[in-house]
Design a protein around this nucleic acid. Structure first.
Lengths: 338, 338
DNA sequence: TTGTAAGCGTTATCAG
DNA sequence: CTGATAACGCTTACAA
C-alpha cells in the first residue's frame, strides 16, 4: 500500500504509546462503548501522533463487512454517460445512502470481458452488497450474481424471471398500454413503435403492452422496429418505419432519448408533430420537457425505485427481509408532442 | 457477506477434500508455480465441488494488495454526467487498464461531506492506488491524499502546486494564449472571456494565458466573467458580458459545454457568430463539432492524459518511478465559430 | 472498564 | 514439489 519504506503503524503501536492493551485501543479507535475518558484520550492522542489508520483487510477479516456497497452498471461507459436513466439512478442511490456510513463504489463495464472480473470482485467480499442497474440486458453478470450469495438488488427485472434475485422495476407493460391508449384516444389509426431490444425485459414488455392495446382496438401491430437504446439506432429505426409505413400517425418510442431522435427524423422529413404524427416516449427525466415540442411520455420512477432498492439492500444486509421484488406503477405525462 | 446460513468454504476444506496441505492448495488455486499436475487437478476439482472463493480480506491482509484501483471524482453526480470531460477521462482510464487484472472502482461524490469517507476508503487500503480527476477544484480530498501514502496520480494539476502529488494536465495557459492569438488574428479588437472558477487551476490558467496575449496587443482585459463549469452559469455570464460591453467582438469560453451555452445566448440576441462575435471554446471532445456553428476550440487531450496517468500509477505501484508530473501541449482546432 | 487470548483465511518461509 | 508453521492486523468473547 505505502510507497514509503516505513510500514504503516498498527494498533499495537497505538496501544503501546497510549499505555493500554490492544483491545482497549481497538474499542477507543471505533469510538467504542466501554472505554474510560482517559483511555480514550490517550488512544486518540497516540493515533494522531503516529498517524494510525485501521487496516481494512484485517478488520473485515473478522467483522466480515467492508462498509461499502457496489453499484454495478454492466454497460459500456458511453451508454452510461448518454442515457439519463443512469444518472438519475445513481443520484437516487447516492442520496438514499447518504445517511449511512456506507461508501458507494461504482463498477462499470460492458458485460463480457470485464463481467467476470466484476463478479469476482463482489464474490471475493470487496463489498457488502450490490445494486445492479442496467437496461435489463440478460447478461452473465446477473447470472453469476444469482448463483453467488452476495446480497443484491437489481434495478430492472432480469430477463430470466426464474433467477432467485430481488428486483425493483417499473410496470413496463402498463406503460406501453398507457402510451397506446393515449395515442388511440388522440385519434391515431395507424400506430407504430420504436421498441427497445427484443432481448431485454424492458424492451419486450413495453412493446407487449403497446401491442396488446393496439390489437384489442382491432388495429395492425406490424409497424415495429427493434433497436438498442441509442439515439442513432432510434433515428435509423424511425426512418425504416416511415419508409415501410408512410401512413403512420402515432409513434410510441421506448425511451425519451430515442424519442427525441425520432422527432428529429420526423422534422427532417417535414412531418409535423403532433399534427401528422403523435409521439409518446418513456422515462420523463428532464429531457422530455426540453425537446421541441415537449414530449408526452410515460413516467419511469427511477428516483423512487432507487430509494427502494437501497432500502431493500440494507434490509438484506441486516437480515430483516428486503427480498420481495416490487413493481412500481407508472403514469403518463401529456405534453405537446401528442 | 453471505445470506445463507452456511459459512463460505475456506481453503482448509479445499485442502482436506483434495488430500493436500493448505499450502499446496493455496498455490494451486493461484495457478501456482510449483504444483504437480495431480495436485492441481485435485484442488481444482475440490474448488468446483464446494464452490470455493478466496477471501479477499484474508488475502490482502498478507499480500497488502487488493488488485483494484480507484478512480476518484470529487464532483456532484450532476456535474459528472453533464460534462463530457469526465466521460472521456473514464473511458481513457478504462481502456488503459483493460490489459491488466486490476478492477476499476469509481468513487464519486462532492467534496465536503463524503470527502472524508472517500479518503478513508483509500487510506484503509481498499484500493492499491488512485487516479483523481476533477476540474481541478482545490478540495480536501486532494489535501488529505497528499498527506497519505496512497499511490496516486491527479488528472488536473492541484490548486496548491506545493503539494507532493503527481499530476498530468494540459497546458491551460498555453491554450488560453492560442485562443487569444487566434481571435486577434481574425480581427477581434474587443476580446472578452467567460472564464472558469477563479479558485481552480484550470480556470485561473486559461484566463491568464488569454489575458497575457490580449494585454501584449495593447487591448483591454477587463471583459471577464468567472463562472462554474455549468451551461446555465455560462449563459448568465455571457449575458452580463454583453450588457456591460456591447462592443465585444471575440469571446473565449473556458469549456465547450459553456461555449455552446454562450452561443445560444448570442443567437438569442440576434448576434451573428462568427460575423459579429467570434467564439473559441476549450475541450474538443465531440461536442465542439456538433454545435451550430461548429466550435473553434482548444484541444484538451484527455484520452492521452488518462493513458499517461494510468501508466504513471502502474509505475508507482511497481516502485519504478511514475512520480514526475507532466504537462501536455495543446492545439487549436479551427471551425465555423470564428 | 480493562486485559487476555483465541481466532478470522490467506500467503510466505523454509525445511524436507 | 510438498507440508508445517509463522505471520498479517484486527475484533471480540470471556474473565478479571
Amino acid at each position: 500500500m505505502t510507497r514509503t519504506g516505513s510500514p504503516a503503524p498498527t494498533l499495537v503501536e497505538v496501544a503501546r504509546l497510549a499505555g493500554v492493551s490492544r483491545a482497549t485501543a481497538s474499542r477507543a479507535v471505533r469510538g467504542g462503548e466501554r472505554v474510560s475518558p482517559e483511555a480514550r484520550a490517550a488512544v486518540e492522542a497516540a493515533v494522531r501522533e503516529i498517524g494510525y489508520r485501521p487496516n481494512q483487510a484485517a478488520r473485515s477479516l473478522v467483522t466480515r463487512r467492508t462498509d461499502s456497497i457496489a453499484v454495478v452498471i454492466p454497460e459500456s461507459d458511453s451508454t452510461l454517460f448518454t442515457d439519463p436513466f443512469f444518472a438519475t439512478v445513481l443520484h437516487g442511490v447516492t442520496t438514499a445512502l447518504s445517511s449511512t456510513d456506507l461508501q458507494i463504489v461504482l463498477l462499470v463495464g460492458q458485460p463480457g470481458e470485464r463481467a467476470a472480473r466484476m463478479v469476482n470482485y463482489l464474490r471475493a467480499g470487496h463489498a457488502d452488497g450490490a445494486i445492479v442497474v442496467s437496461h435489463h440486458r440478460m447478461d452473465n453478470v446477473v447470472e453469476a450474481l444469482a448463483e453467488s450469495a452476495v446480497p443484491a438488488v437489481l434495478i430492472g427485472r432480469p430477463w430470466d424471471a426464474s433467477l432467485p434475485l430481488t428486483w425493483v422495476d417499473v410496470d413496463n407493460a402498463g406503460g406501453g398500454r398507457l402510451a397506446a391508449e393515449h395515442l388511440l384516444a388522440r385519434g391515431a389509426r395507424r400506430p407504430a413503435t420504436v421498441a427497445g431490444p427484443a432481448d431485454m425485459a424492458a424492451g419486450r414488455d413495453r412493446l407487449a403492452g403497446w401491442a396488446e392495446v393496439v390489437a384489442a382496438a382491432g388495429l395492425a401491430t406490424d409497424a415495429v422496429e427493434h433497436t438498442d437504446w441509442t439515439a442513432d439506432a432510434a433515428a435509423a429505426a424511425t426512418g425504416r418505419l416511415l419508409d415501410d409505413h408512410p401512413d403512420v400517425d402515432g409513434l410510441f418510442v421506448a425511451s425519451d432519448l430515442m424519442a427525441e431522435a425520432a422527432m428529429e427524423v420526423l422534422r427532417g422529413r417535414g412531418i409535423a408533430v403532433p399534427d401528422r404524427v403523435r409521439v409518446v416516449g418513456f422515462d420523463d427525466m428532464g429531457l422530455a420537457a426540453r425537446t421541441r415540442p415537449p414530449l408526452t411520455t410515460v413516467v419511469n420512477p427511477a428516483p423512487a425505485m432507487s430509494r427502494r432498492a437501497v432500502e431493500m439492500l440494507l434490509a438484506q444486509l441486516e437480515g430483516t427481509g428486503g427480498t420481495e421484488s416490487v413493481q412500481f406503477p407508472t403514469a403518463l405525462v401529456v405534453r405537446g408532442s401528442s
